[in-house]
């Protein structure tokens, strides 16, 4: 066990620092993904003239591999848009865009699952379309798709290992750096894999529990 202590336990500060960066990238990417997904989905469903654009973007984000998108955002966007100006930003932008494509489809399924009568009931008591959407359609569809949203967050965490390639100092980056310092990959990489598996397992279990709790409280237990 001496090796484990020397290579993993004594390096815990660095590894934890990496994990913090991973969490940070994932959270920012997740917020971007939810907002972007919602925007894409709303444009697709309610803004007729812009629909083809939204469909194209959604399909492009969904059908290109995350690694390709990451490289594209990191090295091509600065040339075209002059932004993102740091690798960290490029990392969360790429992760967020990919997931926003998936979430757009998820939200669409959720919104379409809300029965028409609920909307009509809202209109018949004189609510405005915005109010109907915000008070009736959105809350119900969010509850319906809550498990998929949690699932998408774990996908973001898994893909976030790739931002180490563009030198964002996440857990993967720190682990590979330690391997290059010590030339002893067994303990470091096994521990890193264990941390990732444990972390994602925890996140998905906690997320599922939260989603179930919310659904039960607001009366979607049967779904």
């Amino acid at each position: 066990m001496g090796n484990w202590e020397r290579l993993v336990w004594n390096q815990r500060g660095v590894l934890l620092q990496g994990l913090m960066v991973t969490v940070e990238v994932c959270l920012i990417a997740f917020v971007l993904a939810v907002l972007g997904g919602l925007a894409l989905c709303l444009v697709r469903m309610y803004m007729r003239p812009l629909k083809p654009l939204a469909v194209l973007l959604t399909e492009f984000f969904r059908a290109t591999p995350i690694f390709v998108q990451l490289m594209w955002v990191t090295y091509v966007w600065p040339e075209i848009f002059g932004w993102p100006n740091s690798f960290f930003t490029a990392g969360w932008v790429a992760l967020g865009l990919q997931s926003s494509g998936y979430l757009a489809e998820t939200f669409r399924a959720g919104i379409e699952a809300v029965p028409r009568g609920h909307r009509e009931a809202g209109y018949s008591v004189g609510m405005s379309p915005v109010l109907v959407f915000g008070r009736i359609v959105l809350p119900q569809s969010l509850l319906t798709v809550a498990p998929s949203i949690v699932n998408q967050f774990t996908v973001i965490v898994k893909s976030s290992t790739l931002v180490s390639v563009i030198t964002v100092q996440d857990l993967m980056f720190q682990a590979l750096k330690l391997v290059n310092v010590w030339y002893e990959p067994i303990e470091i990489l096994t521990a890193t894999a264990g941390i990732y598996i444990g972390f994602i397992f925890l996140v998905s279990t906690a997320g599922k529990m939260l989603a179930d709790m919310l659904r039960q409280r607001y009366g979607l237990a049967a779904a």
Partner: peptide
């Protein structure tokens, strides 16, 4: 199922490439 469904692809590729041959 629980191990492999929760493992990121990249770390598994690196692990299999660098650790498994040693083991």
């Amino acid at each position: 199922v629980e191990v492999f469904r929760n493992a990121p692809d990249y770390i598994m590729v690196v692990w299999v490439h660098f650790v498994l041959p040693l083991l």
